[in-house]
Simulated scan of single mutants.
Amino acid sequence: MKIFENIINHKINTITTDELLNYAAQFEIAISRSQASKIATYLRGSNVNIFDNAQRTAIIKEIAKISGPDTAREVNKLFLKFTS
C-alpha cells in the first residue's frame, strides 16, 4: 500500500490549477479558478502527506483560509476518498 500512498501524495504535491479544477468538477466541488490556483500553489510547495491526520488537518485549515470553510470541507472529503 505504501506505493499507492506515494503516488497519491506525489500527485497532490505536484498538482496544477487545471488538474485541481478537473478533480473538483469530477467530484462536484465548487471552486473558482482563482481559488484553485491558490490551493494548487500552496499544495505544490508543501510536500505534504495526506495520509497523516495532523498534516491533512493543517492542509485543510490553510485551504479554508484560501477558499472558505465549505470548500475546505469538500476538499477534505476528496482527500478522505483518496486515503480510504
Rank of each mutant, 00 (worst) to 15 (best):
G68H: 07
E62P: 03
Y42P: 00
Q35P: 05
K2E: 11
S84M: 14
L78G: 02
R56L: 13
K11V: 14
T83C: 13
A54H: 09
T14G: 03
D52H: 12
N6G: 13
N13C: 10
F79Y: 13
I8R: 05
I12C: 06
A72I: 07
E28N: 15
F79E: 03
S84K: 15
D18G: 04
L21S: 04
S32M: 07
Q26F: 11
F82W: 13
I3S: 11
I3Y: 13
S34K: 11
F4V: 13
I50D: 09
A72Y: 04
I63M: 01
F82I: 01
N53H: 13
N6R: 10
S32V: 07
K77N: 15
N76Y: 05
A54W: 00
Q55P: 05
T14Q: 10
K81T: 12
T57I: 12
L80A: 15
K11Q: 14
V48T: 14
E62D: 14
N22G: 01
A24M: 02
N76H: 08
N6M: 14
T57W: 11
S32L: 10
I12M: 10
A25E: 07
E74Q: 15
E74N: 13
K38R: 14
L78A: 09
T16E: 03
A30F: 03
I60D: 07
A64M: 04
N22K: 06
L43G: 00
I3K: 09
N9G: 11
I63L: 07
A24V: 01
K61C: 06
K2F: 11
S46L: 08
I39V: 15
N9T: 11
R56E: 11
I39A: 01
S34Y: 12
F79V: 10
D52F: 11
S67D: 07
F51V: 08
Y23A: 00
S67H: 02
G68Y: 01
L43P: 03
N6P: 03
N22E: 10
Y23I: 04
T41K: 14
N13Y: 03
F27L: 09
A72G: 08
D18R: 07
V48M: 07
H10S: 09
Y42E: 03
I29P: 01
A24Y: 00
I39D: 01
